[in-house]
Write a protein that binds this DNA or RNA. Structure first.
Lengths: 217, 217
DNA sequence: TCACAAAATGAGTGATTACTCACTTTACAA
DNA sequence: TTGTAAAGTGAGTAATCACTCATTTTGTGA
């Protein structure tokens, strides 16, 4: 059980009155099977069997199989993007005068990399279904814009004024930053997961590379 | 009909005696439907209907639905990676003394970006199924290593000796190069496809960013 | 302890699935 | 023209699909 999965299940607990053990079990099994076989290839009977409930129980709580998918996916996208850029973290960046763009990027990278590692099954479902469910693609674009991109803007501008960054258009700097972080994340989590690798050295190399591109000398 | 699709159909024509019109039609329809709905959600009856053939005709040529998928996907991965790094292009790089790593990267980027744009449906099938078909993942890793990564090594070392590149480990330079090209490609093809964008300026910005990271002054 | 609503059940539903096969049509060499 | 192998057909099949519903079990407040 990943930490977001736990969060997901408890947050549902808060919102929709209480979740029974069987309901939690259904969500947990659905996440595993959707992740392993994909949404379309997963059958409700298999989910019910794995969850130890009758198939009818699933449809008591979710009118359709698709509704079950939505119940799982919807909360995830926000939880993937929001936490790091949220109040506490961003405020940190501005408060401490000695903070640098380097430190911001490294913290962001390390934090999200660990998150991705812990929640691969959930993220796999989201990424897969974004390709086929137009609603997901739209929601993803919205979350990305409102919670990631827009949070980036004041930070980049802060460090531009401070003289840490080149006098490039803000969106250009954000593009290269996100792209470099993303590339490093994919490389480290997906491609090189089997290799022995010094996580910290890798993160530092990435930041160094990025800064020589967007940083000021 | 994309160019690779055409290639795919004609190459099959060469290899397995001749393909009839109906057989070509089956492959074409299968590519479209697999790409739109995903392999698992695509039904053979729908493919047959779209192709204008009886469902039995599909199973005369492909024992199973999965075999149809393999017939489509297998040739694509190589065709995506090999052509650019192939003999003619790589030799070009070494022949001309005035060539630079910048020019190599830009040519590679522009060439593959246009390829990706033209063949999005085919690539979508491959990317989706790599997540669920272990054979595809293994084949992809092999093609990537043998045809992309290994071709990169002598090129990077050539420009390192020439003094164009930093004296970093070759694999580190390759990692940043592929990651930067990949990030730019995803950004331009997927994310910003709807925006007005000067392709050439975008490519130059990417190369400039990359070179300030891996280049020597 | 009782009443009652919510939760859970599992046999049953029609639709759809991948795939088969006996049969017909087509292409082409002799 | 004819023989024949390959190509194509479409009705048929068993299995599985998502989903329903009458019934039973469970949790809880009075």
């Amino acid at each position: 059980m990943t930490d977001v999965m736990e969060e997901l299940l408890t947050s549902m607990y808060d919102e929709d009155s209480k979740l029974t053990e069987k309901q939690r079990s259904i969500l947990k099994s659905a996440i595993e099977i959707f992740s392993e076989k994909g949404f379309a290839a997963a059958s409700t009977s298999e989910i019910a069997k794995k969850a130890g409930v009758a198939e009818g129980t699933i449809f008591r709580h979710y009118k359709t199989k698709k509704e079950l998918l939505f119940a799982i996916v919807s909360p995830i996208m926000i939880k993937t993007v929001v936490p790091v850029m949220a109040k506490s973290f961003v405020k940190e960046v501005f408060k401490k005068e000695y903070d640098s763009y380097e430190k911001f990027v490294k913290t962001l990278f390390v934090n999200r990399r660990d998150f991705v590692r812990k929640n691969l099954p959930l993220l796999k479902i989201v990424i897969q279904e974004i390709a086929f469910q137009p609603e997901f693609k739209a929601e993803f674009a919205k979350v990305f814009k409102n919670n990631l991109y827009d949070s980036f803007v004041p930070i980049v501008e802060h460090f531009k004024e401070k003289g840490d960054l080149k006098d490039w258009p803000t969106d250009k700097i954000i593009r290269f930053t996100i792209s470099t972080i993303g590339g490093a994340m994919i490389t480290q989590v997906m491609v090189l997961s089997h290799m022995e690798w010094d996580d910290d050295v890798y993160a530092d190399e990435m930041v160094e590379f990025l800064m020589s591109g967007v940083g000021r000398r």
